[in-house]
């Protein structure tokens, strides 16, 4: 009654009209901005992506041009990061390698996420034997240490960058499946999901329109953190000779190249190593910040 008196006046709550998705985003940005280390991680990632996209057009040398008159040269003005045992400019190789690294990271996580979330949502939504079968299979995958699983897959498929992407994707599937299954179980029980079901909505419609949008936050966080792991694993595989093949300027492979010259030319190993650390660290810090900002419990 008293509440309904000005039922048809313009504003139901006296508040300004706004979109909760926009508000949520503003709230997220505010919190994210307050977290300095996450902000730095985000800026670094943005910089890395730009370098990976445009950098190759501006490098002083081609990544695979050999110069046998200038082998194992230390960093100098001419060669910013020095040269390697074939006289190739390491700076140019690092820049070109950036796109390889990020490509491996993004595509493998994207594939793993797509497969994992699909399986996890199906598992959580339908439950019963579907759930049992999918999740037991995920448990089997999780039982192997990641790098070992990836190695086994590459060993079967053969060493190449694409196979590294596939193997890394496979080992990130169970993580996504678990997270999305858990969130789906929660959302599935909400009353509005039941309301839509009582309207006659198909399962597909409920999953796409009502479940997925509400479980995205934890998945996005996990994807960011997983990029770091994937980059590390992919470099590891290349280091072992199972991934990118010479003369591709992949950082893991570069580390491996420099192994024999560690004493007289340490920069050959150190520089790709530092590059890997920077990428991994950026994604980790960024992912942590995302988690804090997206966590509804820390929302004030």
């Amino acid at each position: 009654m008293q509440e309904e008196v000005n039922l048809n006046s313009g504003d139901p709550t006296g508040k300004q009209q706004f979109n909760p998705n926009v508000v949520r985003f503003q709230d997220f940005m505010k919190k994210f901005y307050r977290n300095k280390s996450a902000l730095i991680g985000g800026i670094l990632i943005l910089a890395l992506i730009i370098v990976a996209l445009v950098g190759p057009y501006f490098t002083p040398y081609a990544p695979n041009t050999q110069n046998y008159s200038n082998l194992l040269a230390p960093p100098s003005v001419e060669h910013l990061f020095g040269t390697d045992h074939h006289g190739r400019d390491i700076f140019s190789r690092i820049i070109h390698g950036m796109s390889i690294t990020l490509r491996v990271g993004f595509t493998s996580v994207f594939i793993g996420m797509t497969v994992g979330v699909t399986l996890g949502v199906i598992s959580g939504y339908y439950g019963k034997w579907v759930d049992t079968i999918i999740m037991r299979f995920m448990d089997v995958l999780l039982a192997f240490p990641g790098i070992l699983l990836a190695l086994a897959v590459v060993a079967v498929l053969g060493g190449s960058l694409n196979n590294v992407i596939i193997s890394v994707a496979i080992f990130s599937v169970p993580v996504f499946a678990r997270i999305s299954r858990g969130s789906t179980l929660e959302v599935r029980e909400l009353e509005y999901v039941e309301a839509v079901r009582s309207l006659g909505a198909s399962d597909f419609r409920i999953i796409i329109r009502h479940v997925l949008p509400n479980i995205m936050s934890p998945i996005i966080v996990q994807a960011t953190l997983n990029i770091a792991t994937s980059v590390l694993t992919a470099s590891g595989l290349s280091f072992l000779g199972m991934g990118a093949q010479p003369p591709d300027p992949e950082w893991g492979a570069m580390l491996n190249d420099g192994r024999n010259y560690m004493w007289n030319a340490p920069h050959i190993t150190m520089i790709p190593g530092i590059a890997i650390v920077i990428v991994v660290l950026s994604f980790n810090v960024f992912g942590d910040g995302l988690r804090d900002a997206l966590d509804p419990k820390s929302r004030n």
Binding site: N21, E191, Y192, E194, A195, V196, S198, L199, P213
Partner: peptide, 15 residues
Amino acid sequence: VQFVFQDPYSSLNPR
């Protein structure tokens, strides 16, 4: 046939 739910807060998708 239709259903009206108890909790007007949780029965509407906030998004």
